[in-house]
Simulated scan of single mutants.
Amino acid sequence: MAESTWRFTNELGQPYFIGLFHGDKDGHLVVHCNSKVMLIDFNVNDSKTYSFFIEEELCEISVNRSEEGFSYSCQINLEVDTPKNRFRKSHVEAEYKSYRQAGWIAGGLFLFLILLTLFLKSINFHRI
């Protein structure tokens, strides 16, 4: 029997332990999170992907069949349209906008200082 485990930690530091059992002969598959069964599927003999939520994160478990046997992966889907991913995207865009605004302000201040320096030098040259 194949077994895989993963650890996911939320933003507050709470750990989630995800486990997968996949029968060699019958292909029965069980996925659990913190000892709670999340899904069961029977006769899994080909590649397949399963999705479930851990809090607000969409977790995807992939079962991939190859000539050597099966391989397993577990990832958080950051692309699909969920409230959490919309929140992330809006904050990334807002952060980019604030960096861009800060760049314009810094550039304007730098240009102002250069012009002020040139102006003050021109006044000093006329006094001499």
Rank of each mutant, 00 (worst) to 15 (best):
E3V: 14
T5G: 10
T5E: 11
T5L: 07
W6D: 05
R7L: 06
R7E: 15
T9E: 14
T9G: 06
T9Q: 14
E11G: 15
G13I: 07
Q14F: 12
P15I: 09
Y16A: 08
F17G: 14
F17K: 15
I18S: 08
I18P: 01
G19I: 01
G19D: 08
L20H: 03
L20T: 06
F21N: 10
G23W: 00
D24V: 02
D24M: 04
K25F: 07
K25S: 10
D26C: 04
G27P: 00
G27Y: 06
H28F: 08
H28W: 07
L29R: 01
L29T: 09
V30Q: 07
V31S: 04
H32S: 10
C33W: 06
C33L: 07
C33T: 08
N34G: 07
V37N: 02
V37G: 00
L39Q: 03
L39T: 06
I40Q: 14
F42G: 09
N43D: 15
N43M: 10
V44W: 03
V44F: 03
D46K: 13
D46I: 07
S47A: 11
K48I: 06
T49L: 00
T49I: 11
T49P: 02
Y50L: 03
S51C: 09
S51Y: 12
S51I: 02
F53R: 03
F53A: 01
I54D: 01
I54G: 01
I54K: 01
E55Q: 08
E55I: 07
E56Y: 07
E57L: 11
E57C: 13
L58I: 04
L58E: 06
E60Y: 03
E60Q: 13
I61D: 00
I61M: 09
I61Q: 00
S62H: 15
S62D: 15
V63F: 00
N64Y: 06
R65T: 04
S66A: 08
S66K: 13
S66Y: 08
E67I: 07
G69F: 11
G69R: 10
G69L: 15
F70M: 10
F70N: 07
S71D: 12
C74Y: 05
C74R: 08
C74N: 04
Q75E: 13
Q75G: 13
E79F: 06
